[in-house]
């Protein structure tokens, strides 16, 4: 099976962390871009189509939960995996209610991360395919008329 060319966005204010995790994901042939705060994440989403976002909860300025709300409002089909600290488990729960796909405790185990990432990508793909089919059906109906 070949790797799907999904686009992944990493959002965290810690530059070193974003860089290292990107390197690892790229090593696994993932297509990764980075954002260093919530606003940057939202701005990028306006320009580029992203499939899965890995989002840190604890960030200065717009925090992860607020960013998640905005993402879901504008791009409800983008899948989001939250990264939370041990003391902020409540925010993980809140995030799940707001429509996050899943969450991971930081420092996250890479294997666990890639597993969740794979699942998130699959769900995203299914959703997109369903929409495409629906659209195709509409087109078909229109062309018959």
């Amino acid at each position: 099976m070949f790797k799907t060319t999904s686009k992944i966005m990493l959002v965290d204010d810690e530059k070193d962390f974003v860089e290292m995790l990107s390197l690892r994901l790229k090593e696994n042939e993932e297509n990764v871009i980075a954002a260093y705060n919530g606003q940057e994440c939202l701005d990028t989403l306006e320009k580029i189509q992203v499939d899965v976002i890995i989002l840190d909860v604890k960030m200065p300025g717009m925090d992860g939960i607020e960013t998640l709300k905005q993402i879901k409002k504008r791009h409800p089909l983008v899948e989001v995996i939250l990264l939370t600290g041990h003391g902020t488990i409540q925010s993980a729960v809140e995030g799940m209610k707001l429509g996050a796909f899943d969450f991971l405790l930081k420092p996250a185990d890479f294997k666990e991360l890639t597993e969740k990432l794979t699942k998130a990508k699959e769900r995203r793909k299914e959703q997109m395919e369903r929409i495409q089919k629906a659209e195709a059906a509409i087109l078909l109906r229109q062309s018959k008329i």
């Binding site: 962390f17 090593e27 600290g85 930081k106 420092p107």
Partner: peptide
């Protein structure tokens, strides 16, 4: 502990990256 968690994650991923390579 909170502050240390972030650098720990960086260390972990740096080592993990090298292992992947």
């Amino acid at each position: 502990a909170h502050e240390i968690n972030n650098p720990l994650a960086v260390i972990q991923d740096s080592a993990g990256w090298l292992q992947q390579i």
